[in-house]
């Protein structure tokens, strides 16, 4: 069994706010193997974006990594020097973001921005012509037509989908082994979304590139990912191969999430909503974070935070009743 490409162990992140600290990431365990596409799913406040930002240490100043290790190819990322970290970013590990138009610099052309990144990551010094050629090649890879003209354009002249392709091109310029994709399709139209998902999948497969795909959209995760991790209230609560997670979720939250999902199907049903809301930092319950909303809660759930239980075949679930929940998702309690 090969070492995982990315290994996050017991990651804890704290938020500094008005002289008080609160834990927003409370012990995340996550692995991504070489060439694997892993989905990181959760609702807002679950900590999924922060987990991804922690990898490249892009957290805003009010958030600090307080514990844990993040290993990439054996390298402990939290111990890197500033220079080494800079080399890693956009190099072996690249990141794309949600709402691409906000993530491109509005006062420079797309070509200037792409070429800056290409030059930054090339091993030898390239001539202007070589850099330009590489930029055009990247644009072709992400299927942007008329690349020369597009390179001279400014971000505001692009649609959301095109801008995301530009970001992907920039991310690919350093030939990354791991791509962190933070909700790359959330701000896009559904037809454009489908194209971008397809593009990501093809590129990942062609290059043998691993992807950590952060999303709240389970449908997109199904289509793109080999494996899925579900996050709730700053922790991973379940991880499994995609089809296994969908067919046989072992954590009550995952189950409830799947049941709450409206489907484009003929049957109209009362959507099983989850009562209450995800706890905020201030009112985190004792023990299992989900038990206050859980249909299967027992008094024991309050005693301690459950460990991730091995269900077999790499399927883990953070619930003391995992493996013993009724699988008939029509009737919850």
């Amino acid at each position: 069994m090969e070492e995982p490409l990315l290994s996050i162990q017991n990651l804890r992140v704290q938020l500094q706010q008005n002289h008080s600290t609160a834990e927003v990431i409370r012990g995340v365990e996550l692995e991504v193997n070489k060439g694997e596409i892993v989905g990181l799913v959760g609702e807002s406040g679950s900590g999924k974006t922060m987990t991804a930002l922690s990898v490249l240490q892009l957290l805003p100043p009010s958030l600090q990594i307080s514990a844990g290790t993040i290993k990439f190819n054996g390298l402990d990322l939290l111990k890197l020097s500033r220079k080494e970290l800079q080399g890693l970013r956009g190099g072996s590990v690249a990141m794309i973001f949600q709402d691409p138009l906000r993530h491109l610099n509005p006062v420079f052309t797309v070509g200037q921005q792409l070429e800056a990144v290409i030059s930054a990551h090339s091993a030898e010094k390239l001539t202007k012509k070589q850099v330009r050629e590489k930029a055009i090649e990247l644009f072709n890879q992400v299927k942007i037509n008329d690349p020369e003209r597009r390179l001279r354009s400014y971000p505001h002249q692009f649609s959301g989908g095109m801008a995301q392709r530009v970001m992907i091109a920039m991310a690919l310029s350093g030939s990354p082994k791991l791509l962190l994709a933070d909700e790359p399709t959330a701000a896009l139209d559904v037809t454009v979304q489908a194209e971008i998902l397809r593009l990501l999948k093809n590129i990942a497969r062609e290059r043998g590139m691993a992807v950590l795909f952060i999303s709240h959209n389970l449908g997109a995760v199904w289509q793109l990912c080999d494996r899925v991790c579900v996050m709730y209230a700053g922790q991973v609560v379940e991880t499994a191969a995609t089809h296994k997670l969908i067919e046989q979720p072992e954590h009550p939250y995952t189950q409830a999430l799947l049941e709450a999902l409206p489907r484009l199907e003929l049957k109209r049903k009362e959507l099983a909503s989850i009562p209450g809301t995800m706890p905020g930092l201030a009112d985190m319950p004792e023990g299992c974070a989900f038990h206050t909303r859980c249909a299967y809660a027992l008094p024991e759930c309050r005693l301690a935070i459950p460990e991730l239980l091995e269900m077999g075949g790499g399927h883990l679930a953070r619930c003391i009743r995992a493996g013993n929940l009724p699988q008939n998702t029509e009737s919850a309690a």
């Binding site: 490249l56 800079q86 956009g90 990141m95 973001f97 906000r102 990551h121």
Partner: peptide, 18 residues
């Protein structure tokens, strides 16, 4: 410096000076 596009530029490994 706290804007999204600067965060993306940092993530792409450009030097702080630039």
């Amino acid at each position: 410096l706290t804007s999204d596009h600067i965060r993306a530029a940092t993530a792409s490994g450009l030097s702080r000076w630039r």
